[in-house]
Amino acid sequence: MLQGISFTLSAGGMLLLRGRNGAGKSTLLRALAGLTPLAAGDLLWAGEPALRDLPSHAARIAWLGHLDAVKPALTVAEHVAKDALNPVGLEKFAALPARFLSAGQKRRLAIARVAASGRKLWLLDEPTTGLDAASVQRFAALCTAHREAGGMIIASTHTPLDLPEMQVLEL
């Protein structure tokens, strides 16, 4: 059970969730997405309760969970538009069925899907799991571009990220 959680995030902001395993980072992210109902309290979006209309709230969110949601039978390009593959370095695998991707490549594909979503709020649960150093840098660049465009990011990660002006919430 999480209690006493309170934060404000402005356009272009990023909140990093930190805490030991089992501290509730994933639970908080799922609650913010509307996947897990809140027992008490509320999430406000521009001053309005956000979770009362879940489909509308969902339309603001790009979600990256623990699992990559990659379908082995589909090709890489069938998961996300080809243009979105360049920033994560998967463009040469566009025609490849996703079952041939490594774990890190599947994670990059999932990140590409988030970046291509065009949605305002990114909710990312351990987004850098399985990524090498170069891929972490690419991910950080995508986060910066999203924030510069006015987007917001809430992420849980144990990987140090070289990103400016991040809020940190310890759970």
């Binding site: 997405a33 996947l35 489909p55 949601a69």
Partner: peptide, 15 residues
Amino acid sequence: FEDGTLDLLLLSGLP
């Protein structure tokens, strides 16, 4: 459910 796609479907904006 097993590969995480269900979360994406529920967050697709469709009821």
